[in-house]
């Protein structure tokens, strides 16, 4: 075992310490990451380093032989981003020792994310680790810390409800569609209106296998543009009422001040497909679909408020799970830390 004491450090700026305009300045494009690594490796007594770079955080995990490294890292960071060092302290923070391990475990499991419990961050941490490994910037300590981090993340995700339930409108709509149709590969989708929320929702449906998408809009050109963008087809606004029975999922997001889909239209459509359910997603304000539609058997109607309520419920459930997860992760971090201390890592 080496007699030299190593220190585990974290330098970070996240959505908790820096507003969006500052995070924009700290953002690093993929092609510049190598340059940041190269600068960090030039710092004397820095043994290992790993850069976690996402839209909400820039974090440097460091193994150093001397505590004075902090100033050198800050200098390099400011040079790299052309940022004044006096302002940096306001938007960044340092952690050391077991606090770093705790922080990493919480970040990787989505507890520290803006959208609590989101899973994208786990992939980003893994990808950052891979990049650092490819650049030969991680050594035995960071390697062990990150391997344990992935194990803990997996455990928390499998054994708690931190990632359960969707928290975006599009994902909630996908979940509901899956509860109705099972899988979306053969579902036919009609998008009425070319609003942004509607487009995002259709993209979410598409990401789960839906590929038969038709767009309709009062302005046919807009329908064609969106259809091209999402690899669908367009139909004239006047034609969609007669074609309703051909679709399983109907997403409405028009700016129409009045109802565009009435109860009688859907009853008539259901007459042609009595045994096939229909799912209506009304994202428009004011609403596009008559509320009585919800009373028709085999027809499921969700408006923007319904979807937002489910998303909020899911988010609240995730938030309620944070303390439990934190406790579990802390115990795992402590176990890892006592092992690291044996190997010469100190605060």
């Amino acid at each position: 075992m080496s007699n030299t004491q190593k220190e585990l450090l974290l330098f970070a700026s996240t959505h908790r310490t820096a507003p969006l305009e500052i995070r924009e300045q700290f953002a690093i494009s993929a092609d510049r990451v190598a340059s940041l690594y190269s600068g960090l490796r030039g710092i004397n007594s820095l043994e290992e380093c790993l850069v976690l770079n996402t839209c909400n955080r820039i974090e440097l995990y460091l193994i150093s032989l001397k505590p004075e490294i902090k100033a050198a890292v800050e200098d390099h960071f400011c040079d790299f981003h052309n940022f004044e060092i006096d302002r940096l302290h306001k938007f960044s923070f340092w952690k050391s020792g077991i606090d770093v391990v705790n922080h990493l475990f919480e970040v990787s499991s989505g507890i520290d994310s803006q959208m609590v419990g989101e899973t994208e961050i786990t992939g980003q941490v893994k990808s950052s680790y891979q990049t650092a490994a490819e650049m030969a910037s991680v050594g035995p300590v960071l390697h062990r810390v990150f391997q344990k981090c992935f194990q803990s993340t997996k455990w928390v995700r499998s054994n708690t409800t931190i990632g359960k339930g969707q928290i975006s409108i599009g994902s909630v709509a996908v979940d509901l569609a899956l509860r109705i149709f099972g899988n979306l590969t053969s579902s036919r989708i009609l998008v009425i209106g070319t609003g942004e929320v509607g487009e995002k929702t259709v993209k979410a449906l598409k990401s789960r296998g839906a590929h038969s998408i038709t767009v309709s809009s009062r302005t046919y050109d807009n329908a064609k543009t969106l259809a091209k963008k999402i690899e669908g087809q367009a139909i004239a606004f006047e034609d969609f009422p007669n074609a309703l029975s051909n679709f399983d999922i109907i997403v409405c997001s028009t700016a129409s001040p009045e109802i565009i889909i009435s109860s009688s239209m859907i009853k008539s459509a259901m007459h042609e497909r009595p045994n096939q359910p229909m799912f209506f997603i009304d994202l428009a304000v004011p609403r596009d679909i008559e509320s009585q539609v919800a009373n028709i058997p085999n027809v499921f109607l969700y408006n923007l408020d319904d979807l937002a309520e489910i998303a909020n419920e899911n988010l609240n459930s995730r938030i309620a799970e944070i303390d439990g997860c934190r406790q579990i992760l802390r115990e795992r971090a402590e176990r890892l830390w006592s092992g690291l201390e044996h190997n010469g890592i100190t605060h």
Binding site: G165, V172, D175, L178, R179, I180, F181, G182, P277
Partner: peptide
């Protein structure tokens, strides 16, 4: 409009 508990684990209506 229930999304919690047992309903989230049940097979789909169509299945």
């Amino acid at each position: 409009k229930r999304s919690k508990g047992m309903v989230s684990f049940l097979p789909s209506i169509l299945q």
